[in-house]
């Protein structure tokens, strides 16, 4: 299994992290898309386990989650997809899942299956560290990193708490809001990243709303990683050959590399 920390130790470049909803538009498309993203410059891929009530997500991921569920995608299907992909790509895979599907499967069963399927980490958007103690212990026992999120609304005490508990990296939410491509980023983004940097030892990756190479470059000036999700899924929707999505990732990668 690829360790998340290794990405930041060894690549020496700004990490590019892609999010895809498993099974959107089809399971077969996910199996083609993830290797394509890896080949075109992604360093980590987040596999989204679809949930019926994605309260932290905007219109794009609501839609892809809904369609994936209609396609019969379950946590077990996602584990199977991860197992196939981890044999094929050498970038770490991370699950993004709301808490209830994990709870329903059982924390220990789920984390064991993650480890067996080559999944390196978990991001659970409705599980702040106040509620995450049990999953932290269980995931750690299986060698899986539980990545926590921080938002610009955080007080200094929250930043200290989350920085103390997150493993692998810290997921900084770029804006006050839900996921989804935005025309412009939050004005206070740099200040927010600096506030976290003063406290945290982990790599800092910024996501939510990033939809262009220019925005990625702005983020890369202060962060260790850039997370792109909704924009990729929009391009997948527009072009099911997946070439548009690949082209976009290539462009972001090139912009990040030339800015360094």
């Amino acid at each position: 299994m690829n360790r998340l920390a290794d990405v930041f130790d060894t690549t020496g470049r700004t990490a590019l992290i892609a999010y895809v909803t498993v099974g959107y538009p089809t399971i077969e498309a996910t199996l083609r898309l993830v290797p394509l993203l890896a080949r075109n410059g992604c360093d980590i891929v987040e596999l989204g386990i679809p949930f019926s009530d994605p309260m932290a997500d905007g219109a794009t991921i609501q839609k892809t989650s809904h369609e994936a569920l209609l396609n019969g995608v379950t946590p077990d299907v996602c584990l199977d997809v991860a197992r196939q992909l981890s044999g094929e790509v050498d970038v770490p895979l991370v699950f993004m899942s709301y808490y209830n599907p994990i709870l329903k499967k059982g924390l220990d069963d789920f984390c064991r299956a993650c480890a067996d399927s080559g999944v390196s980490g978990l991001i659970v958007p409705d599980l702040p560290p106040d509620e995450g103690g049990e999953l932290e212990l269980v995931s750690a026992a299986h060698g899986v990193d539980l990545v926590y999120l921080l938002a610009p609304t955080a007080t200094d005490a929250r930043i200290r708490l989350v920085a103390d508990r997150s493993r692998g990296f810290l997921y900084l939410v770029s804006l006050v809001g839900v996921t989804g491509a935005r025309a412009s980023l939050h004005d206070g983004l740099e200040d927010f990243v600096d506030r976290v940097r003063a406290v945290a030892k982990q790599p800092l990756c910024v996501g939510f709303g990033i939809s262009s190479p220019e925005q990625a470059v702005r983020v890369a000036k202060v962060a260790d990683g850039v997370i792109v999700g909704s924009r990729i899924l929009q391009l997948v929707e527009q072009d099911d050959s997946l070439e548009e999505a690949a082209r976009f990732v290539r462009a972001v990668r090139a912009a990040l590399d030339s800015a360094e």
Partner: peptide
């Protein structure tokens, strides 16, 4: 019960 919410809402 508890408080299973996105981190953005915790301070609120």
């Amino acid at each position: 019960g508890g408080r299973f919410v996105p981190e953005t809402l915790v301070p609120a």
